[in-house]
């Protein structure tokens, strides 16, 4: 959907939602490049009710007609609802619409977090390299907080499927392998060897079945120049599972390519793990964490393979999809091979 189409259709939607509004203006529309799971737009709303004018910058996230991985805006909405006004910072939600008659696919709208950055490679350069450890500490604290949050206490238990503690790893591995089976454009012998290794050497049961963000990494949170984290974003892969999954994903070397020993180019690995353990109350046993880190590479490959498939099949012709799939599958493949050489 083009920006122009989106603006027109969203205006119609807003008029329906706010019959008392006398005028609705949308401007400063910007398509946010980089999102592989959603079509994302930033825009300014100017809504007039009789004698009151409301100005708001918002983000609209719309499901792609052919998503990379099958995820729902409802999952994101539920996550933001669960954590709004808690110590896990998330934006305020405004509207969700699952009827495709309005925008072609389901979408939701939330406030835009302004005055922040989200690209994690900025930590390699001034001025952001000066605050990267501070951001990293906060990131690990938040990740630990998500891990220890009781799903029932934030209203998520009834909304998400709950595996038994000894089934967490299998649920995830089955799901991602299924995605690989469905989407791979060529056989991946190294990836298949890794999947077999994971099945032969399963981890112990989860210490607790908790909330897993699913994509907890650099690029999916907003930070300020003073090191403060203003929002954790991109919750579309949220599920209940082993909290170690998030820690391992955040340690994926794809997100710290130039400095493998720093989580997300921010914090030395051992310090990051210690903070997560302290805050979550869980133990990150090195052998168990290694299983989840190899799993993370498999999960990463599944995502990058899906990007290659949707582009190749003409379901999504966005250049970022092609580029992301090409480069990430190359680098993730190298990471996975190195991991497998250590264990096989």
């Amino acid at each position: 959907m083009t920006e122009e189409e989106m603006v027109e259709r969203f205006k119609v939607y807003l008029s329906d939602q706010m019959p008392d509004a006398t005028n609705i203006e949308i401007d400063s529309v910007r398509s946010i490049v980089g999102g592989a799971s959603r079509q994302t737009f930033s825009m300014k709303l100017n809504i007039t009710y009789k004698d009151t004018e409301v100005l708001k910058r918002v983000i609209l996230r719309r499901e792609f007609e052919s998503g990379i991985i099958d995820t729902k805006v409802r999952t994101e909405w539920d996550a933001y609802s669960a954590f709004f006004n808690t110590s896990v910072p998330v934006p305020e939600l405004l509207w969700i619409e699952e009827d495709p008659k309005w925008m072609g696919t389901p979408f939701f709208v939330m406030e835009e977090i302004v005055g922040c950055q989200d690209f994690f490679r900025l930590f390699l350069e001034a001025p952001y390299n000066a605050v990267r450890e501070k951001v990293g500490e906060r990131f690990c604290e938040i990740m630990g907080t998500i891990a220890k949050t009781d799903p029932a206490a934030v209203g998520l238990e009834d909304k998400l499927d709950k595996p038994a503690p000894d089934e967490c790893w299998r649920w995830e591995l089955d799901w991602w392998e299924e995605n690989i089976n469905k989407n791979e454009l060529e056989p991946h012998p190294g990836l298949r060897a890794a999947i077999r290794w994971l099945r032969r050497n399963p981890p112990p049961p989860a210490q607790k079945v908790g909330i897993v963000h699913g994509d907890m990494r650099g690029g999916n949170f907003m930070f300020k120049i003073d090191g403060e984290i203003k929002a954790i974003l991109d919750w579309e892969l949220m599920h209940l599972g082993d909290p170690l999954e998030d820690l391992a994903w955040s340690l994926n070397r794809l997100f710290s390519w130039e400095d493998h020993d720093r989580l997300g180019l921010m914090l030395p690995r051992e310090r990051a793990i210690r903070i997560w353990e302290d805050v979550s109350g869980f133990k990150a046993d090195p052998e168990v964490l290694l299983w989840w880190e190899i799993f993370s590479s498999v999960k990463g490959m599944a995502i990058w393979i899906s990007m290659n498939e949707v582009y190749s099949a003409g379901k999504n012709s966005s250049t970022i999809i092609c580029f992301g799939g090409m480069f990430a599958s190359d680098l993730q493949g190298r990471i996975l091979l190195r991991q497998m050489r250590e264990v096989s």
Binding site: Q117, D118, F119, R121, L122, L124, E125, E258
Partner: peptide
């Protein structure tokens, strides 16, 4: 590519 993306993302 990384260098270019960093510049574009700032």
């Amino acid at each position: 590519a990384f260098a270019m993306l960093t510049k574009a993302a700032t």
